[in-house]
Amino acid sequence: MSHHIIEFRNVSFTYPDGTAALRDVSFRITHGEAVGIVGPNGAGKTTLIMLMNGLILPGGGEVMVGEVPVTRKTLSEIRRKVGVVMQNPDDQLFMPTVREDVAFGPSNMELPPEVIEQRVDEALREVGALHLKDRPPHRLSGGQKKAVAIAGVIAMKPDILVMDEPTAGLDPGARRQLIEIVKGFRHSRIIATHDLDLVLEVCERCILLHGGAIKRDGPPGEILLDAQLMQESGLALPLSATV
């Protein structure tokens, strides 16, 4: 299934203030892969994510989703295929109730109301948040907010699921639940995170960003457990490797 592929071809991006966030980044993520993107603060993780669904467009090179390049014209198609879960769920849950928030994406796809309703239920069930359906988002706990934010994205049935720091700010219990949810997905998954144990557990591939360029691309076991590489890259060994 070629449309589940996301490919960066020599992508560069410089912010208007002159900061070069990404330099000549190339990689190809294929169907069903779970890829962790790690790197210290400022390595370009968030920029990478914003490029994936066209929130920003590359300054040089090309981003391909399936056979479609990300350009101004293809944005609506791209955003249907690439679902992005933002880091802060408060930024993503803007509708008055959970139900309406999860329905936001499907409604924008102009689906018939029955289908929307069905998608909302499916998505909420998948993240174990069906009982929150009529609650307003500002009355949810951190973990619940996160789960609902994910439901809002998977309700659009994206081919590729991109998550920015999915476990940030969660208590250990909520983090565990979230990991199980993410493991259960069959989408191609791209997870940008500082939670290296999450990458070790969920991902079969890991991309290490440093200073806006790819420093390593390979199995998480080889990259994350390399003490010297981690130290050079401003990271540290995952917790599970130190005990």
């Binding site: 930024d91 008055p96 139900r99 329905a103 659009m156």
Partner: peptide
């Protein structure tokens, strides 16, 4: 800054200028 992030989240989920209110 938050407003920008919220708008980005709206765009990511296909916002075209019409709010689907129940």
């Amino acid at each position: 800054q938050r407003a920008e992030r919220i708008y980005a989240a709206m765009l990511s989920r296909g916002y075209t200028g019409r709010m689907p209110l129940r």
